[in-house]
């Protein structure tokens, strides 16, 4: 009876979400092992060993795992999972890429984006982009679960647990890594930004999004848009925040010229602080806003950019 956490790493450092997943796993009350797969990841392994609650860190160090291709690492996890009752990971793009693959090979129905662990087989997760919360009970002997890391406070530190190598080597030739680009110095990515400034149809055209950029520059914010603004052709689809776009939950979300359709609210209502700027006093966005400012965005935005 133990839990295995599939942890990620980047540039030799452990993914900070790992400490949050470990904290979540503690609710299961079983020994917790962490497995890392990659190449030359000793530093990340040491960091994992020092997370409070971790019994053992398993390290599969092989060139084949360098880019954590789902086809390779899922097979290792299948090999390892026999000893465990729970396999957890962060509900990151990597976690979501890998866990379902393991689940299919183990004939398990996996659970995605869990925000609370009620018991060893019962979990809570958002559905309909967070418009409802489902409590679900897994009937499988092995539970395969990705956790929304931000829903858990990170675990503390301990003196290092043991680190053991995993010798399983699985090399799939069906897919190959080509390249990776992580833009630096530019605007933060929408789903991980601490502050998001979004524009809606009220912006009038794509050119006017420059007004948002001035505000975003001051706040180090990402820029989003409502589906209405995307449908109107102001900005590209990948800036869309909402049920059909990105789901964001930053510390601060500033909605400008966005009326607040159901589908937009589904994508941002878990933000910690919401500011709405709109000239329509009746706009539904004000119902979810902590701070509402009724006014002409073309006057408000330049003033805001100046005063921040």
């Amino acid at each position: 009876m133990a839990t295995l956490i599939f942890a990620e790493h980047q540039d030799g450092a452990l993914d900070p979400a790992t400490a949050r997943v470990v904290a979540g796993a503690k609710a299961l009350g079983e020994p917790i092992d962490v497995v890392l797969m990659g190449h030359q990841i000793d530093g990340a392994a040491r960091q994992a060993a020092e997370i409070d609650g971790v019994s053992r860190v398993l390290v599969a160090d092989n060139e084949a795992y360098q880019h954590v291709l789902a086809e390779n690492v899922s097979k290792v996890l299948v090999e390892l999972s026999g000893e465990y009752t729970h396999l957890l990971a962060s509900a990151s793009t990597t976690g979501k890429n890998v866990l379902p693959r393991v689940a299919a090979l183990k004939d398990v129905s996996p659970l995605t984006d869990v925000i609370a662990i009620e018991s060893s087989d019962t979990f809570r997760r958002p559905i309909y982009a967070g418009s409802a919360i489902a409590t679900v009970k897994s009937l499988d002997a092995l539970k395969i679960v990705s956790l929304r890391a931000t829903a858990f406070e990170p675990a503390g530190q301990q003196s290092a647990a043991s680190i053991e190598p995993v010798t399983v080597v699985e090399v799939s030739t069906t897919s190959r890594f080509v390249s990776e680009a992580r833009p630096e110095g530019e605007r933060p990515e929408l789903t991980s930004a601490g502050v998001v400034v979004s524009g809606g149809r009220g912006m009038g055209n794509g050119e006017n999004f420059k007004l948002l950029e001035a505000v975003a520059d001051k706040l180090g914010a990402a820029i989003g848009a409502s589906r209405a603004a995307v449908d109107a052709g102001y900005v590209p689809n990948d800036m869309q925040v909402g049920q059909t776009g990105k789901i964001v939950a930053p510390e601060l979300y500033i909605a400008v010229g966005i009326s607040g359709s159901i589908q937009h609210l589904a994508g941002m209502k878990d933000s910690r602080v919401i500011v709405a700027i709109n000239n329509d006093d009746e706009a539904p966005i004000f119902k979810v806003a902590d701070y509402g400012l009724v006014g002409d965005l073309f006057e408000v935005l330049p003033e805001l950019a100046q005063k921040l």
Partner: peptide, 25 residues
């Protein structure tokens, strides 16, 4: 393989306050 135990609405956000100016915001 998964039993749906319960579905509920998330806790509603409370409407906050209106501010009168950019300075106040």
């Amino acid at each position: 393989r998964v039993e749906l135990v319960r579905v509920e609405l998330p806790t509603e956000r409370q409407e906050g306050v209106r501010v009168g100016s950019v300075d106040e915001l």
